[in-house]
């Protein structure tokens, strides 16, 4: 049995310990905001926050995560409202189909937590693992730029 803390809630998972976190989230716990895109760590659609890093849930067997705290897209906002990154995403009308966007947002949150003032080049590098087939890159970049400490902020 593996203990996970997901969005602040404890779970004891009795599935095969080799099962990637992605499928535990989606099929067992029912948190479907984390998406399946490639299953091999190439697209970032499955990104979740673990220790303030954006990690690929499709590549993480739960046996590696015993006792860990995990934040998914559903855990970013709470009763007090949306996370600033989520707000910026709406403000800049970033999503198109939206399928990659929970991953994009998680990676942006991780970036800004670790580097509150990223340069354009740093943004591009940090977000390079998140594919978007709809081509929302210009807006992802713009939204993150306004969130920088010295950015415009969210109007």
């Amino acid at each position: 049995m593996i203990s996970l803390k997901i969005n602040g809630k404890p779970y004891n998972v009795e599935e095969d310990p080799k099962t990637p976190l992605l499928w535990i989230l989606r099929d067992i716990i029912g948190l479907t905001g984390t998406k399946y895109g490639c299953g091999i760590g190439q697209c970032g659609a499955c990104s979740v926050l673990i220790d303030e890093q954006s990690r690929r849930a499709c590549m993480l067997p739960i046996e590696m995560l015993d006792g860990k705290s995990i934040t998914t897209i559903e855990g970013l906002s709470d009763d007090s409202g949306l996370h600033p990154v989520q707000k910026a995403w709406i403000e800049h009308d970033v999503p198109q189909c939206g399928y990659c966007q929970s991953g994009q947002i998680i990676s942006a949150v991780a970036l800004l937590e670790n580097n509150p003032n990223p340069s354009e080049a740093e943004i591009k590098t940090a977000m390079n693992g998140n594919l978007c087939r709809c081509g929302t890159y210009p807006r992802v970049e713009k939204a993150i730029l306004t969130l920088k400490n010295d950015g415009d902020g969210i109007k």
Partner: peptide, 12 residues
């Protein structure tokens, strides 16, 4: 749809 997308609530 945007609000649902950014919270992971949009059901595909």
């Amino acid at each position: 749809k945007n609000k649902k997308i950014v919270t992971g609530a949009l059901e595909y």
